[in-house]
Design a protein around this nucleic acid. Structure first.
Lengths: 104, 104
DNA sequence: TGATTTTATGTCAAATATGGCATATAATTG
DNA sequence: CAATTATATGCCATATTTGACATAAAATCA
């Protein structure tokens, strides 16, 4: 919906937020969560490939084992920033990261 | 790193101490910042394509104009999470996002 | 030009993410 | 099996990110 139209409707008391928009909200939420889980799983995959324990990876990241566990689980308390920085610390390239995001 | 790039980062609020310290920005730190700036610039591009003002986009995101300005500037106070969620809110697909990350 | 709109920048309280820590559970080893 | 190692989960004080707000600066318009 274009902004001008939205403004017209809203000024007349309409509350925008069609069911279509509502559904798109959950689509967005879903895409965000999927993205995070893909990064999380890949982090674990790379750690195992390097034969590191969570404690060892935590030390590398200047973090701690419990946070690594939460990262690999894609826990809600873990940010994309931390996931991406952690992947980069393991030598992941942006080409790799793009590939991870594309995974189905 | 060339002076133009440094100026580009500094002008966007990245606090860089001495040039020596700046040169010590590790490859991963640099990759992280580049990634963020690529997403930031794309967010602005998409907003303009949709002919939205920052105020209008802010409303869409349930945020505010000043934060949209900071997002588009790739300001350090803006998280990857917020950037990605905002792009998704503008209809950006994960394929799109992967493409943005790959951009050189 | 001056008025209006749009964007940039700074501050702040509240919300969220973080490392550190304790401890539980699971997996491995001997 | 028990002992050891590895991972998961919960809590908390601190740090970072957030929306909200004020206002400055820049761009657009009439």
């Amino acid at each position: 919906m274009n902004p001008a139209k939205r403004k017209r409707l809203e000024s007349r008391g309409w509350r925008i937020g069609s069911s279509k928009e509502f559904l798109r909200l959950s689509e967005q939420e879903n895409a965000y969560i999927e993205l995070k889980l893909a990064l999380a799983e890949n982090l674990k995959k790379r750690r195992l490939e390097k034969k590191l324990t969570q404690v060892e990876l935590a030390k590398l990241l200047q973090s701690n084992q419990s946070r690594v566990a939460k990262m690999e689980a894609g826990h809600p308390s873990v940010s994309l920033d931390l996931l991406v920085k952690s992947l980069l610390a393991l030598g992941t390239t942006k080409q790799d990261i793009a590939g991870i995001i594309l995974q189905e």
